[in-house]
Write a protein that binds this DNA or RNA. Structure first.
Lengths: 211, 211
DNA sequence: TCATTAGATGAAGAATCCTTCAGGTTCGGA
DNA sequence: TCCGAACCTGAAGGATTCTTCATCTAATGA
């Protein structure tokens, strides 16, 4: 388990002209599609390049190695989800716990399901050694926002809400993932939104009151 | 995404003498350790054999290919967890929902944490294409038991409890995973047991009553 | 004891894949 | 128009890894 230098996953060259911006985006999108089509094991740089309609050389001009492909996709997706949670927290500052939770749950679910294909594809990629590290790092963002918001709503010190926030966040993640892996049919998604809200509110009511 | 023939992951040869039984077990254990040490990307059959103290040839005498290594480990672990849930359901047949949940949550958590290292190692392995299929297949076992038990306890038709069971199961999975990936320090594990119970009971109370 | 089967070995074939780089094409501005 | 920078190409080097198989050793039972 060697630790890689920090620059090892940064883009090698920044796009300047528009065509290269398109290329970079196409490669990212191709990564997702290849991931969905053949799985992370059989994802090869050549296949991604092919799918993106460019040559391998071009790919390596912007992504320093294979891992950086997955990392880039993972990063943008998780960031989007974390921002959704942060946004919901910000928009309901000062609200009661019940209302807060009522805002956060759909925000999370929507962000995750907006690109259900990406979420699904990434469950396979988040596995590698520092894929997990990325997940942890960015999840912490959403978690921190949630912790602070809960603490404010409950009038409790943040320390007391840290674990509660972790529970809510991970319950949302677990349930959403289960639905996603079941194929996310519309009926199930609707039900997820309802039940997850019930679950989180019931838990928050119990757990915030008693602390 | 080619579908492999059904026999492709079955052991090639069944151990007969005791020494080979030991070997097969050693290889499975080595798989876990290699997984933990270097991650699933850099897990190689040679490395596993080395760690197990046998030669690659021996490995291939019992495991038809690399994937079967991971699948075997995944299968036994998940089966153990599913059996724990089934057992808890069986032991509390006829009990109230609250009591039922109070039995299932610790059963699940304990089974998952009894070999925390295996659980952690497998999050990396469950990613591959039909690793996910195995997870689905075996999780369904625990889910079915939970659905039936909830239906009986609530006096409701099983159809109504299917999704509720999914929520509980996936919330347990999500929260436990989060703690596991945080390193599973003793204090956190204790808290998990408490909070997860609160969460599941609060949800069950709300969701079972209203249906 | 000895033949037969189970078990173990590890070098090497075969395949795959990551990554580079020398050389070509396109764009943007002077 | 023309030059330099940005961009693209894809064959091939280099490295890794999966898997096989001919061969050897250990156990079993008659």
């Amino acid at each position: 388990m060697k630790t890689a230098p920090a620059h090892a996953f940064q883009p090698r060259k920044t796009p300047i002209q528009r065509r290269s911006t398109v290329t970079v985006e196409a490669i990212a999108e191709a990564t997702i599609q290849v991931l969905l089509a053949v799985g992370s094991d059989r994802l090869t740089t050549t296949r991604v390049a092919e799918r993106a309609g460019v040559s391998v050389g071009t790919l390596y001009q912007y992504y320093p190695n294979k891992q950086s492909l997955l990392h880039a996709v993972l990063e943008t997706h998780l960031t989007r989800v974390a921002e959704a949670v942060e946004g919901a927290c910000r928009a309901h500052r000062g609200a009661a716990v019940e209302e807060l939770v009522a805002a956060i749950v759909p925000a999370y679910v929507d962000a995750k399901l907006e690109r259900a294909d990406v979420s699904t594809a990434l469950y396979a990629a988040g596995s590698d050694v520092d894929g997990a590290a990325i997940v942890r790092r960015i999840s912490k963002r959403g978690n921190r926002a949630l912790t602070a918001a809960l603490a404010e709503a409950a009038g409790a010190p943040p320390g007391d809400m840290e674990f509660v926030a972790l529970m809510i966040y991970s319950a949302m993640a677990g349930a959403t993932r289960a639905v996603l892996e079941a194929g996310a049919p519309a009926r199930m998604v609707a039900r997820l939104r309802e039940e997850l809200l019930v679950l989180c509110q019931a838990y928050a009511a119990k757990s915030v009151r008693s602390s």
